[in-house]
Nucleic acid binder design. Structure first.
Lengths: 351, 351
DNA sequence: TTGAAAGCGCTACCAG
DNA sequence: CTGGTAGCGCTTTCAA
């Protein structure tokens, strides 16, 4: 029976066995193929010794020297790792993993950074674990902007999925073209004859919400439509339903199409309309901006974010950043599309 | 606007700024809390400098010294990473990730090792990437036993999910108690009055299959039942259906219950029985040993593997191995259960 | 209590 | 073409 080795062999051991210097070993091991001008004979002797000893390079030592790991990090600001298959983020990860594999990188899931408060910080006891990887992809709704600023300040290569503005820093982001596609949605609605629209939102604040809102407002104006959105939120206090007043106004008014920020909101809308004997899409058309589950695909007219593709692009952008010492790392905007569901129909006069 | 730093600060920089020696810095930074006997004053000065410079320790250097990374690897022998949500392996990963996070470890997904032939090897050009992590969890049906042997031989800490026998090595495995639960299944069938059973399998060979098969055979014998399994495979040449001869024999014979190795096999069985006007479970009861999707839960009587729990246990076992220098790392057997579906009923005489 | 110094295993530079 | 050598940034004796 084989005996387990007590200590991993080092280049020095190989060198001794092969009767060459350690640096010769290094050159044979590390240099790309034939580029190292080493006589075939020496080369063979070294390789032979390597095999005999079962030598494998020590990655830590290597990266200490070369400052490269072939390791890319993934950090989510919420504790939603593979966890939630239904998660908004899952598909991004698929793309990330796929592309990383294609490019020969391994992935580090930074999961250790979880804190008790349900958020994840990059810095823990002042230690930035991310440094372990050559660069990282960050994502999550609860992005900590201080972390982002600090990371950027350190010159650590990273990209963020989703737009994040941090004063004094230029965060390279991979961002869905919310502005554009929301405009497309409004236009599509206009083509269906809708002239009076309203925008149903939860809490505004994040950049993504802003982009969508701007796209909506902009298109409505450009197309000469009428926006009947109310100023405040339509959500009830407990956030489980929509305000009766809001729904009543919708039921009474001229609005024939609603652009809903999220699926839950749209769901509440449906319930509210139902109670008022209004049907979707016959009486009111609905488009959802953030639908997640696969079963949502058939149901709602919705904004489709090419998540997997975005994950892939994040890796591409990151690798570029990692490879290019001086690169600035511009943000990239990714086009989105509209998926057809069963919630948009031609506008019809209501009484 | 903040300027990005060109070079990350090192302990030497901190030391200079604080007016102390580098080793003092190291002691303050690395030593667990108060254990380093350092005057409060000095300590504060150092911490102050750390903050000012935004110093963060370099993980590679650290692990080169300490030979510890707080990094655990995951290596799948097939290219099925988060990829397949429906994958048999997905749930294991959930548990692995969860437990690793709890223990403060980060995870490395070894995705870079993919080869063109669709298999993943641990060693690529003789380099063992796994060394990057303190230890690794391996899984996958296509386990390469040479890799396993070599890894074990090197003394690299790892555990394998699923039993794997390698001559000359004692691979620490986390294994579902297939033997036991298959016995339970047979017993359950017996309680329902079934006396004549058959075992429907694909290609035998892997350890898991053996265990299940043994559990079945053993229980059948113990309970005095009759096993009508045929010697060869019941699969047709193209593997998309069952052999007509096999099905005819089943339809004719006294067998009232089938233990099917996998869901696809059970599916084919259903089709074949249907064509012969036999109903499940009225005429024939069916239990599936390897059902994956969540929708399978309601449908089949099946063997349930607590995958997530196994993932967690794998991490526990691995960490133990990593922590204990001399540990042997025994295998652990995890109990499985039977989930009730709609495919088992009391045995009924057929004509 | 603190600092000097010796490496961890590797790569890369510079002589020969 | 090859070997010696100087570190990468950190931890850890060992003396002072």
């Amino acid at each position: 029976m084989a005996r387990r080795r007590e200590r991993a062999p080092r280049q020095a051991d190989v060198a001794r066995l092969a009767g060459v210097s350690q640096s010769a070993v290094s050159r044979v091991i590390a240099s790309d193929a034939e580029s190292a001008r080493i006589p075939e004979e020496t080369r063979r002797r070294i390789l032979q010794a390597v095999k005999e000893l079962g030598y494998v390079p020590n990655p830590s030592a290597r990266s200490l020297r070369k400052k490269r790991n072939k390791l890319l990090g993934v950090h989510t600001f919420e504790p939603v790792f593979p966890h939630a298959r239904e998660s908004f983020y899952f598909e991004f990860l698929l793309g990330i993993e796929e592309r990383a594999e294609e490019l020969g990188y391994d992935l580090v899931l930074f999961t250790s950074t979880g804190t008790s408060d349900g958020r994840r910080r990059v810095y823990r006891d002042g230690v930035n674990r991310l440094n372990l990887a050559d660069g990282s992809v960050l994502l999550g709704a609860l992005t900590d902007k201080n972390d982002l600023a600090r990371l950027w300040d350190e010159g650590y290569p990273f990209v963020h999925i989703g737009r994040r503005e941090v004063p004094g820093a230029e965060i390279p982001c991979i961002v869905p073209d919310y502005f554009g596609v929301t405009g497309d949605i409004v236009e599509m609605l206009a083509r269906h004859g809708h002239r009076h629209l309203t925008y149903l939102h939860g809490t505004l604040g994040m950049e993504a919400y802003e982009d969508r809102r701007r796209g909506y407002v902009d298109a409505v104006r450009k197309l000469g439509l009428e926006d009947r959105s109310s100023a405040g939120s339509a959500l009830s206090e407990d956030k489980t339903s929509l305000l009766a007043s809001w729904l009543d106004e919708l039921a009474a008014g001229p609005v024939t199409a609603v652009v809903a920020e999220s699926e839950p909101l749209a769901e509440m809308l449906l319930a509210g309309l139902d109670a008022r004997e209004l049907r979707v899409p016959d009486d009111v058309s609905v488009v959802v901006l953030e639908a997640v589950g696969p079963e949502a695909r058939q149901r709602w007219h919705a904004l489709h974010i090419p998540r997997k593709e975005i994950g892939r692009m994040a890796i591409d952008a990151l690798v570029e950043l990692v490879d290019d010492p001086e690169g600035q790392g511009a943000s990239v905007v990714v086009p989105c599309s509209i998926v057809e569901g069963a919630t948009v129909a031609a506008a019809r006069e209501r009484r």
